[in-house]
Amino acid sequence: MTSVLKNRGIELGLWVFVLILFSPLLFIAVNSLKDFGEVLMDPIALPKTLQFANYTETWSESAYHRVFLNTVLFAGVSTLIVIVITSMAGYKLSRLNSKGSQMLLLLFTIAIMLPFPVVMIPIAQVAAWLDLKNNLLAISVLNAGFSCSLGVLLFSSAVKAIPRELDECAEMDGCYGYRMFFQIIFPLLKPVTGTLVVIYVIRYWNDLMLPLILITKNKFYTIPLSQMIFFNQFSNNRWNLLLASGVMAVLPLLILYVFTQRYIIQGIVAGAVKG
């Protein structure tokens, strides 16, 4: 009986903790609906009238529809490419299991440990030479190659659980190469593919650095980059617009999270533990 009471107490305590930590988000939502003067004068009070104009102004100022679609394109294409190339490479490297393939796996691991600034300057250079700057599709290809470590590692360890006999049977039936892989092996890798899609989509969606050094035209801004530019433009004064833009920036993933919460958390955990 006491333990039930104790658990109720802990539950209450946790909700208080959560409320204190996350009430700032409510204040942000409230302040994003005030006019300019009100935010500056009295950030605590409720808005006198709801200023949805903050949102319409932010929307048109940052061309949110275009920024949103750019982010979908960037995150979507990058994820697609990274899944295709890393599943193939992970499969082959795992199957070969020779000294050479072990070395290659090690080579693929390096990028996980090193922070972005280590390659930042030359990447901007390489992109300029190959004329990739301000080209979202090309940047997505670069992005996929640059960040493929985790995919190669997770796919190569997942392939170990699939018996070799399967490959051999398929080959006897005359099914080789890409067709064999994508029709027979790849469907069996669904769990790890799901994990990686979750991790990569969130990572790409929120990535600032690559867009920051490779995109200079506002036509191609992604959400984090557009936020950064917006912030630099208005920092320290137009808080009503900045807060509205912040709400708009986090909303898409938040909505997705509400519906796919379970998969997102499972994916994140699986990725962290196996990685």
Binding site: T86, F108, V119, V141, L142, A144, F146, S149
Partner: peptide
């Protein structure tokens, strides 16, 4: 495909 892109956009810059 993976090795080429990874080399070009990570190893070479490194």
């Amino acid at each position: 495909p993976a090795l080429l892109l990874y080399s070009l956009f990570f190893i070479v810059p490194l």
